[in-house]
Amino acid sequence: MNEEVTPLPSLEQDQTSEQTIEEIVASLGETVGEPRVDDPKMSVSNVNVFYAEKQAIFGVDLDIANNEVISMIGPSGCGKSTLLRCLNRMNDTIPICKVTGELMLDGEDIYGKDTDPVLLRARVGMVFQKPNPFPKSIYENVAYGPRLHGLNRNKADLDDIVVNSLKKAGIYNEVKNRLDESGTSLSGGQQQRLCIARTIACSPEVILMDEPCSALDPIATAKIEELIDELRENYAIAIVTHSMQQAARVSQRTAYFHLGKLVEVGDTDTIFTNPSHELTENYITGRFG
């Protein structure tokens, strides 16, 4: 049934064939589409990521623009999460992880000697796959970041930040009467929005989202997607997702990764209606992945 899909370099095949990942990646050719935008917020140039000896990302170029959502899609193990975690140096916590190439935030190298990862993470916030509120009160969850960075001058300031962040994350009305209850007592969708509020509270410039809806039911997912669309007005957003519908709904640009290589990037509409690369087409039509 799948016969017309001629030799697909997939992970499964790699185990049986003689080809190494490097050879398959080389056979994928150049990235299709335009990875660059005018006036990028973040810019990734020729980035390679290694876990010990194993290379996870091969020479990726990609820009993240202001007031735009870019979604990264691709089969499991294609390196999209790895790239995302490079953007705020969360990969620093993995000792065997090595990053080469250039990653810029507003024209500054984020892996440069002068860049402090703590400051970087305040500017580039992250929302994770599994909702991970701190086991503290809802208020404390949101107030933690601003307090760390000293963003508030006094208690009233902090209250303002907390309320505004919760409002922006669209959860304020649901929790305004129980700010001192534990963040873990909320439902999964509420927890994830709380995590978004926590990220917003640090007033970041970029928000990275690593499959933010994969643990949520459709209603909660719809709320988060709505929220992402609203947040676009003020932030640059990069989202990794396994749901192509989600990518189509929330993002303006889409990047398709395969085995650590950026295969195709372009306007979401174009990618989903008229993909140029065979692999992209196969993936978005659901033939594999």
């Binding site: 969360m90 703590v118 400051l119 993470r121 305040a122 992250m126 599994k130 701190f134 933690y144 640090c202």
Partner: peptide, 11 residues
């Protein structure tokens, strides 16, 4: 995930 969360907000 707790470590990630705290690192993510810049601790």
């Amino acid at each position: 995930s707790i470590r990630d969360a705290a690192l993510g907000v810049g601790a």
